[in-house]
Structure formats: structure tokens, C-alpha cells
């Protein structure tokens, strides 16, 4: 029997493309690209999954990408500048939906936390666990801006 502790890359691509096509009016599928430098990411949004499967789902965005997510999800005009509250809410909801869909692929039952959004790096951890390792990641470019989705699991659960 094979026990899988992280979702397949193809599943992440499918989830991200579903979200982008429904909430962000994206027509062309987003294609995986090489990872960008860490400094390219100005915003992070994270949600944890606990229960039958434990993981941290983290999304990272450039400043331009984050603002475009907020503008489009909130139905703002192109000339409207999203404020901090807009970014927190929109990026939090996006990682909530993506995290929920990732959770549905994994052993359960599991629960989602409320999302956390931060400028720069978000600081969070799994209950009772101290060490997380990145198990799967997907780097894409949207509006020619970098966006990254990564799934981290407790080091004891990570595939070797």
C-alpha cells in the first residue's frame, strides 16, 4: 500500500487553474515555470490543515500580482488601488479556496484554519509540530508576475 503525504503537482496545477479561471477571469492555463528568487515575493497567504492530513498551504505573490488578485476578486476598477484590508481579504480567500481543494485530495477528515496574510513572509506552524519541509510546489507567472504555491508537511511525513 502506498501512503501519499503530499498532492501531485498535476493536481495543484488543476486547482490553481480552476481558481484562476473562475475568480480571476484567466483564459489561458497557467504553465509551470522555474522558481523565482525569494525577493520577488512581496505577499504571503497561508492556511493550515489539521486532522487526518496535516500541512501548511502557502501562496506567495509579487506586489503587482497580489494587487491584481485583490482588484479582480473584489471587482475593482483597473484604476482603483486596493488597500491593505482588500489585500488581506482577497489573498486570504484565495488561499482558503485552494487549501480547501488541496485538503479534499488528501486523507481526512481534516479541518482548515482561518487564513493568515502578511506582507513578506507569513509566520505559522502546525499544532504540536516544529519542523516543516516543503513537499510540493508550483511556480507560475500570471500577468507576467510570479506566483508560487507550496505545500509543506511535517518532516516525519515527508517523502524521502
Amino acid at each position: 500500500m502506498t501512503i501519499t503525504h503530499e498532492p501531485a503537482l498535476a493536481d495543484l496545477e488543476s486547482i490553481v487553474n480552476d481558481c484562476w479561471s473562475t475568480f480571476l477571469s484567466n483564459v489561458e492555463p497557467l504553465e509551470p515555470v522555474a522558481p523565482s528568487d525569494r525577493s520577488a515575493y512581496a505577499w504571503s497567504a497561508a492556511i493550515t490543515v489539521s486532522g487526518g492530513w496535516q500541512a501548511l498551504v502557502l501562496m506567495q505573490f509579487s506586489d503587482t500580482a497580489a494587487k491584481a488578485v485583490a482588484q479582480q476578486m473584489l471587482g475593482m476598477g483597473a484604476d482603483e488601488e486596493p488597500v491593505l484590508e482588500d489585500l488581506n481579504d482577497a489573498l486570504g480567500e484565495l488561499v482558503n479556496v485552494i487549501g480547501g481543494n488541496v485538503k479534499s485530495l488528501m486523507p481526512g477528515p481534516s479541518q482548515l484554519s482561518l487564513p493568515l496574510v502578511a506582507q513578506g513572509t507569513v509566520s505559522t506552524s502546525l499544532p504540536g509540530r516544529t519542523e516543516l519541509v516543503e513537499a510540493t510546489s508550483l511556480d507560475v507567472r500570471w500577468l507576467d508576475e510570479p506566483v508560487r504555491l507550496s505545500i509543506s508537511v511535517a518532516s516525519s511525513d515527508a517523502s524521502v
Partner: peptide
């Protein structure tokens, strides 16, 4: 919905 973003999406629909 606790998300203003999601309320906005549903409201528009």
C-alpha cells in the same frame, strides 16, 4: 461569508 471578497463575488452574480 466571513470573506468580504467572497461576498462581493456572490453579490455580483
Amino acid at each position: 461569508d466571513d470573506s468580504r471578497t467572497m461576498r462581493s463575488i456572490l453579490r455580483r452574480i
